[in-house]
């Protein structure tokens, strides 16, 4: 209907002050976000989160037996967080270690690397 279009026209507003502020607030709260996502606002959906750049998911291709052995000796939560960190850093189409592709490592501050 005509007035649907009037009310719901797309109007992305990625750089609103509120969204800038929430990013600062998030950093202050210790919230970790992947570099390739960002909050945005559209009149149609309200606030949301979108990919600021292309995102590709690639699972861990391989871990050396030594790494697995080392991790398995540690506490199970630590093992999981190691996996998350490795996964994050190996998430690239080439499977190579590309820290810039995902600078955030999801390790809780309270644990730290051994």
């Amino acid at each position: 209907m005509a007035h649907d279009a009037e009310v719901y026209h797309e109007d992305h507003q990625p750089e609103t002050p509120a969204l800038d502020s929430i990013m600062q607030y998030a950093r202050a709260q210790g919230i970790q976000m992947h570099a390739s996502i960002s909050p945005y606002h559209s009149l149609k959906h309200g606030s949301g989160i979108r990919a600021a750049g292309p995102l590709e998911v690639c699972r861990i291709k391989s871990l050396s037996l030594y790494t697995l052995y080392t991790l398995a000796r540690l506490d199970s939560n630590l093992f999981i967080y190691h996996l998350l960190a490795v996964d994050a850093n190996q998430s690239s189409p080439s499977g190579q270690h590309e820290p810039d592709a995902c600078p955030t490592i999801f390790l809780p501050d309270s644990i730290g690397y051994p």
Binding site: H12, I37, Y40, H45, G48, I49, R50, A51, A52, G53, P54, L55, E56, V57, N77, L84, F106, P108, S110
Partner: peptide
Amino acid sequence: HNRYGFTVAAQAPAAAEDEEI
């Protein structure tokens, strides 16, 4: 979620630029 908080992980193979998550 676990005792440290919430984690959001992507499951789809890819998301294009500007695509909502």
